[in-house]
Design a protein around this nucleic acid. Structure first.
Length: 264
DNA sequence: ATGACAGTTGAAAACTGA
């Protein structure tokens, strides 16, 4: 089973590129972030024509996540538990039934958190850290289930210096601050496996290049889109990769897809 | 401690992203 994550940066602007990628990469499951659309306006017919079931959790203008799946989806759940007052659409999960086993799949769009200054007033960064704490609680429950499960999406976290072409440039950024990386490591170290690092220790594995300053042309990228596997899912990992060529096409998202293949 | 891009909204610039 091939599962991919892709921050598309707006479904209205990205539908042609998304359809082209779905046709050629043909993931069984695609987790989308930043659909920037309410559920009613999501172009589900065009995607269903390619053989996908579509489940969205959208909102107007910003955020929004979705699951596309060629296999049936069961027990769909929207919104990250832990704060009923949180109205931002950043989390969706569902169970996919494979040939040999089921897999719980969680799609996430973790808050950016900038600006992270000044230290005494940084509501967006505080929201990011609080969101990661709620995510940690959900992650603990996934591990406790001892089942095949994964959490994939735009984590907005640069885990290590080698995950950025110019790490010093990100030193004071919410994506790379020590607090952010420590909170991410706490989740990882519960027992999850970073699928990309399970399969490669290479440098320059990036999933995002800024639209500005010719970042793509200079390969000034960062790795912030991640697929984290439970031990049970990691045992079934057969491959992982990043579809970086999409960034060089017309009207690209600033993110590219990251994918895994699992023997389920 | 900024701006450059790009997308969305709504009809011009403001807001958001990373």
């Amino acid at each position: 089973m091939k599962i991919a994550s892709f921050n598309i940066n707006g479904i209205k602007a990205r539908l042609p590129a998304l359809l082209e990628w779905l046709r050629e990469a043909a993931p069984d499951v695609a987790l989308l972030q930043e659909i920037k659309s309410v559920d009613e306006a999501f172009p589900r017919l065009e995607i269903e024509e390619l053989g996908y079931n579509v489940e969205t959790h959208g909102q107007k203008s910003f955020n929004g996540v979705a699951i596309l799946s060629k296999l049936p989806l069961e027990d769909v759940s929207r919104g990250l538990p832990g704060d009923d007052s949180d109205e931002q659409a950043r989390w969706i999960e569902a169970t996919v039934v494979g040939e040999t086993d089921a897999l719980r799949i969680c799609g996430l769009y973790l808050p950016n958190g900038n600006p992270a200054h000044p230290p005494d007033s940084r509501p967006k960064f505080d929201y990011k850290l609080a969101w990661i704490e709620r995510l940690e609680a959900r992650a603990r429950a996934l591990l406790a289930s001892e089942k095949n499960a994964l959490m994939a999406g735009d984590w907005n976290v640069i885990p290590e210096p080698r995950d950025a072409e110019n790490p010093e440039k990100w030193r004071n950024d919410a994506l790379f601050l020590p607090e952010t990386r420590a909170a991410y490591r706490r989740i990882l170290h519960l027992g999850f496996h970073d699928a990309i690092r399970e399969t490669s220790q290479a440098d320059q594995l990036y999933t995002f290049w800024d639209y500005q300053r010719g970042a793509w042309e200079r390969n000034d990228g960062i790795r912030i889109d991640h697929v984290l596997l439970t031990p049970q899912a990691a045992d079934r990992l057969t491959g992982a990769g990043i579809d970086s060529t999409l960034r060089g096409r017309d009207k690209p998202s600033d993110h590219v897809p990251v994918w895994v293949t699992l023997d389920v």
